[in-house]
Structure formats: C-alpha cells, structure tokens
Amino acid sequence: MVERRPFIVFLTHFILVVGVVAIALPIWITFVAASHSEIRMTQVPLPLWPGDQLWVNFKNTLFGNGLEGTETAPVWLMLTNSLVMAMMISIGKIAISLLSAFAIVYFKFPFRMGIFWLIFITLMLPVEVRILPTFEVVAQLGMLNSYWGLTIPLIASATATFMFRQVFLTIPDEMLESARIDGAGPMRFFWDILLPLSRTNIAALFVILFIYGWNQYLWPLLITTDQDMTTIVISIKQMLEVAEASPQWNIVMMVALLAMLPPILVVIGMQKLFVQGLTETDK
C-alpha cells in the first residue's frame, strides 16, 4: 500500500482499536458481570473490571437450577437442547440440500424445473411470515415440544441447495464421465467423488448453519412450552423478566455468556470456513 507516513499508520490503528473496543464492550461487560457476586451486582456503579466469582458463578449456573424464584430447567439441559437443535438443523439442512442438488444437477427427469422453483420459493417464505399456520401444522402432527418439531420445519433450505448446485456445476463433466466408464453408479459417484470434492463447502456451510440453528429464537419460543425442551437462548428472556423483580445479574450474564460461547468459539476457531460459508451462501 502506498503512503507509509507514521501519522497515517498511527491513525489507522487508533481508529481500528477504537472500533474493536466499541464492538467488544457489550461482551466485556457481560463477562465482568458474570465474574462478580450477586451483592456487588446491585451496587451502582456496576464494576468495569472482572471480579473473583467467575468460577463460583459458573458452577452455580451450570449445575444449579438457574435463578432463584423460577422453575427453569437446569442450564446443562438447556445447553444440551440447544446443541441437539443446532446439530439437527445443520446436519438436516446439509443432507437434504446435498441430495436434492445432486438430483437437480445430475439427472434429467420430468418436473425437474418445477421442483427447482418449488425449492426457490422457500427462499421467500421465512418462518416469520408463516408462523401461525406452520405452528398449526406442527401441532396437528403432534410435534410440539419435540426435537422434530423444533428442527424439521426449519431444515428446508433454498440457499444451501443453491450453494451445492453451484459447487456441483463447477465440477468438470469429465469427472462424471470418467466415473461412469469406471463403472460407478449414481450413489457410488455421490459418495466417492462428489462428497469428497465438496468437503470444504460442506464444512463452511456447517459453521454458518450451526450458528443459525443455535441462535433460533422465535420458532422454539412458540413450540416449546415444556420447560425440559427449552433452549439456552430462550431461557435468557425468561431470566431477564425474573431479574427485573429480583436482580441476580451475575447469574443472568453467566447464562448469556454460556449461551454465546459455543457459536463464538465456532466463528473464531473456524474463521476461514466461516467467512467462506458466509460469502458463498449469500451471494
């Protein structure tokens, strides 16, 4: 890059650091709040530097029963629910999208274009615009308060199907021809050639979908009335309401920390895949 004047270099880093601090502040404050005692968290002004209660709060939150004065499910159970939901959504989406993209790209069959448009339409029907009737369908199928009800209505995905279709289209035709001469049937070709060749795309998509699944809010809010099916993200809202009456911010913020930790770790740990997944699915 041109211009290496010290002042400009300093200004560049200064502004970036200010930006990072501004972005990180809410999470820092959460972390600080989760490391103090309940008493300290009722005294104004609240601390800006971490205390020594992090481990205690962590233990009490993870193995205790959440907040006093409520009957929420244990935090470990809610974390498990979130994990199961996120995994089912991401694996389910990837599986059905891979299969239908494979069919659409590598087979010629009647109604092929019809099915393509059917899948395309789902792009225009986010869960928010069809909540009530979808809720009714799930209720009629007896899937309320179940993992199936939590996940299946969310796993049809046009974006994932389109992404895999794009990936398959860039694989040279000779790959299929060569496999056919080698004697591989369709499913063998799918397993031996297509899946290994789309490995990084699958991983990238998984990162995005895991975050998407873990962070689901409106849908689980509607269909889980049973405390044992609550996800960690849902529980935050209930705790906020309780905290208004009897402030236990240290516990609430510890729960918030636990709830955001898995997706943050995924983003930071698999940054390259995350960026790839984000740019591939949205473009």
């Binding site: 059905i96 239908s100 087979f107 899948i119 339409i121």
Partner: peptide, 29 residues
C-alpha cells in the same frame, strides 16, 4: 450437466425429503 445418469426413480427419491418438508411446512402453511 451435459451428461446425466440414465432415467430412474432415484432422482425423485433424492428430492423427496426436501420436497415433502417444503410442501408440508412451507407451501401449505
């Protein structure tokens, strides 16, 4: 693709999960 697998019921089975979910939880609602 320029080349395809020969016609069979397989493609319908492959798209079935997505199509069923789309119809039941998207199009119908």
């Amino acid at each position: 693709k320029r080349v395809h697998f020969p016609p069979s019921v397989l493609p319908y089975l492959l798209v079935a999960p997505q199509v069923i979910i789309t119809l039941v939880f998207f199009i119908w609602p």
